[in-house]
Design a protein around this nucleic acid. Structure first.
Lengths: 124, 124
DNA sequence: CAGAATCCCAGCAGATACTG
DNA sequence: CAGTATCTGCTGGGATTCTG
């Protein structure tokens, strides 16, 4: 760690860099969770809504729009009645979901340590 | 990918799970950037403020508090006048910053593809 | 079923000023 | 230098209703 990487990670730290915008999209709470949910496979709208507990339909469709616009998710429509719409990660989406899953798994492994730290901090 | 992992990544997808809270902290825009900045080494308050372009002192100190409380950052104080305060990643902080750096680097690599996707989407 | 539209509010975040 | 305090506005996001 620390300064060994060939590419500096100043990108998002720079205010005017387009990276910052992408970073903002990535730090959008619901988008992240939707991406995580989709990393397990293709899902339809309502299935997705159920999978990401607590998300409203509004936020879901809004998040999906951003994800589709950023090319991280594809939207498939079957023109039947009633319509069937499903969402799937693109290559881009899969790539970025990988480190995200790592974060998710890391939380699972470390949640106890974090809670201990919080308790200790709050006691002070 | 897709369902191969032993541990499911449902953690953050579950509403009542403490993981969700941690996930929210992790997806906090400024906290993320501060963590990223610190992954390059120890920094003092104002150095940090300069490094993370656009952050206000208020948001910086607020983010730092959360990070310290979650045990991802340690605060060192030298009781001199004027005081010198520096911030450093803990073991926990280093662990999460790793996938975060990956995301950051991924954006750098893929920013062009993302912009192309956006342009294409907006044209439709 | 998959969303769009509308209304509305809490709290995140910016600007400014002050302090140990 | 390293913050805290206060005031305010902006918008992310919830609840509800309506439609192709």
């Amino acid at each position: 760690m620390s300064r060994t990487a060939a590419i500096s990670n100043d990108g998002p730290l720079t205010a005017d860099c387009p990276c910052r915008v992408v970073f903002d999209h990535l730090t959008s709470r619901w988008s992240l969770l939707v991406l995580l949910a989709l990393s397990d496979g293709v899902l339809r709208f309502h299935a997705l809504r159920d999978r990401v507990e607590g998300i409203s339909e509004k936020m879901l469709s809004q998040s999906l729009k951003t994800l589709v616009r950023d090319g991280r998710v594809v939207r498939h429509v079957e023109p039947t009645v009633p319509p069937k719409v499903s969402y799937e990660l693109t290559r881009l989406g899969e790539e970025v979901s990988e480190p995200l899953r790592q974060v998710s798994e890391w939380i699972g492994r470390r949640i106890d340590d974090i809670k201990i730290a919080q308790t200790h901090y709050d006691a002070a």
